[in-house]
Design a protein around this nucleic acid. Structure first.
Lengths: 132, 132
DNA sequence: TATAGGGGTTCCAGCCACTGGAAGCTCAAG
DNA sequence: CTTGAGCTTCCAGTGGCTGGAACCCCTATA
């Protein structure tokens, strides 16, 4: 199957699939005309990467997961270790964003938002007020 | 004051300050020896950018905020509009991450994480199971 | 059979926001 | 006078694509 079909079935744009091949993440066979030729198993792997990426794994982590995916004998603990680490990162990211949200929300709440120039948001950003 | 001092007082690395000058965000005077020369007001602006960046504003947004910061006559509503938009983005980001966290958390919980090869995480990523 | 289109191919450049490193200059202390 | 820290510029790389140019291939239709 051509790259366009593989793209549609995996949910990844053709450009991205070529990029993944470029960096050696996933290679494909070539047909006689030079076109990339994807098997169903290739599409499985592409979709696997697509899902992993959309769950926040980096491309390098996808490379690891993919080798764990391919290795039928690896221990599930190996996979769990990566996923757990990622979970921690997501939690940290959420906490950080929640902190930001609170701080920025404060500033926005206190700004009357009219035609007058005085603005607690600008004051907050410039460090002139300590009202949080 | 030299760039190193300005860096220490603003919380931005010298490299970053030079980069900001490169892209025309913040310019500095030059001393006779060619060194960049920062005033206290320059440091205020640097710190303003530092805070804005750490609150999740992009460099382009910082450029806008900076001109609003400098313009003593602008309406606070202009600032509030940008900040409110940013607040929405942060909320969307938090919601997205929370969704991810839930999905990945599910997969991790269901994985026994021992020496056996069968692994719900891998299965989930490859789309072989529908147990969420 | 010519042609038009919608694939596919490669390669180069750009995005964002820095960051590292090389090569060379200036300055203050010992 | 030398040493070392700090400053200068410029070039290249990061991650993960994405856009675009220039070209090839395949199928359908006039």
């Amino acid at each position: 199957m051509n790259i366009g079909t593989a793209a549609r079935q995996s949910g990844l744009p053709p450009k991205t699939i070529r990029y993944y091949e470029d960096i050696g993440l996933l290679t494909a066979d070539r047909a006689a005309n030079g076109y990339r030729d994807y098997s169903n198993e290739d599409v499985h792997r592409l979709r696997f990467v697509q899902r992993s990426r959309s769950l926040g794994f980096s491309v390098e982590e996808c490379r690891q997961l993919l080798s764990l995916y391919t290795d039928r004998d690896r221990a599930s603990a190996d996979v769990k270790a990566i996923a757990t680490e990622k979970l921690g990162e997501i939690d940290r990211k959420i906490a950080e964003l929640t902190g930001l949200r609170e701080m920025l929300g404060h500033l926005v709440e206190n700004c009357h938002g009219d035609a007058r120039p005085d603005c607690p948001i600008i004051d907050g950003l410039s460090g002139r007020s300590r009202d949080h």
